[in-house]
């Protein structure tokens, strides 16, 4: 009996040792995830105060509400430049590095100079995601990168609408905005494959709605037989539509452009704008918040999340 006990004890201890040794070397990857034990503060720096970002914000707010029901408190701060001014935009990024938030989301206004500061933010240990406009390979990105493709697709759509022939014009947006320039490049490359279509004017509207109206009016004066207009940003299809509707040429001149602002949707329903490529920017806001929380928990997140775009037409809206 005594011997049995001794043996049993020895075996038991052996097991215990083996077990404890086992847990010592076992590697539970779940332990890598860190619990969130405080309120997280994220700062979004968009390019400019613009209704387009209100939809991004709605997506971000939705994510915040979801997270709250899961017990994670997040505060999202929007630090929006009142005008699209590169120095002001950079100043905000710089100031926010000093504030050291738990997450920083930046929409690049000027990738060339933003890269420098975003690099400094990362070096300072700030969790960073670029959104809306692609900036550089070295930073995580949530948004739509296919600016060239958007221009190309809209050119094909416009060509189909005008029966593959006639004069068209381009409202080129801001000359210093890379996404505008890329859309114009895509548009022109596609149009080059349609010999019946001629580009008769190309003017920068600086993302200024009033200027888009004036340019369109001038273009109509110079080319009464204008068949189509391509707008490279969110505000110029509206400007073009106002001018065309004013001239009583709604439907005669086919307008295509970017994004689904409320006024744009109204013009599509009224048949003044034929179609727009709309981004799903609600998704951008939602996933940026989700990913920043995930990063704070030491999760891995996708380096690039393409949120895509689609051509919105009257038929599609009716559905």
């Amino acid at each position: 009996m005594g011997r049995f006990r001794a043996v049993a004890a020895a075996v038991g201890m052996g097991w215990c040792l083996a077990l404890s040794a086992g847990t010592a070397v076992a590697f539970d990857q779940g332990d890598l995830i860190q619990p969130i034990d405080k309120k997280l503060t994220f700062v979004f720096v968009p390019k400019v105060v613009h209704p387009w970002y209100d939809v991004v914000k709605a997506g971000a707010d939705h994510a915040v509400a979801e997270l709250k029901s899961g017990g994670i408190e997040v505060e999202v701060i929007w630090d929006s430049p009142p005008q699209a001014d590169v120095s002001d935009h950079n100043r905000r990024i710089e100031t926010n590095i000093g504030r050291h938030p738990d997450g920083l989301a930046v929409s690049c206004l000027d990738p060339a100079s933003n890269v420098q500061l975003l690099g400094e933010a990362k070096a300072a240990g700030i969790r960073l995601i670029t959104f809306d406009t692609f900036c550089a390979e070295e930073f995580d990105f949530v948004g739509h990168k296919g600016d060239f493709q958007d221009g190309y697709d809209l050119a094909e759509f416009l060509a189909e609408q005008i029966g593959d022939e006639g004069k068209v014009g381009i409202l080129a947006g801001s000359l210093t905005a890379r996404n505008h320039a890329e859309r114009v490049r895509g548009f022109k490359e596609a149009i080059a494959k349609h010999p019946g279509i001629e580009i008769v004017f190309e003017q920068p509207d600086d993302d200024d709605l009033e200027k888009a109206v004036t340019l369109t009016e001038n273009a109509l004066q110079a080319n009464p037989d204008l068949k189509g207009i391509f707008g490279a940003n969110a505000s110029n299809p509206i400007g073009a539509a106002r001018a065309i509707a004013n001239a009583g040429k709604a439907g005669e001149v086919v307008i295509v452009g970017m994004d689904d602002l409320p006024e744009t949707l109204q013009f599509i329903q009224d048949g003044v704008i034929a179609g727009v490529k709309a981004q799903r920017q609600w998704e951008i806001g939602y996933w940026v918040v989700r990913y920043l929380v995930a990063q704070n928990q030491n999760h891995t997140v996708p380096h690039e999340h393409a949120t895509g775009s689609q051509i919105l037409t009257k038929e599609l809206i009716a559905q």
Partner: peptide
Amino acid sequence: LYASRMDAGQPSVGEGW
């Protein structure tokens, strides 16, 4: 000095100055 700060000669620099 601003170009040096940003390591880029930026066409829109000075617009808001």
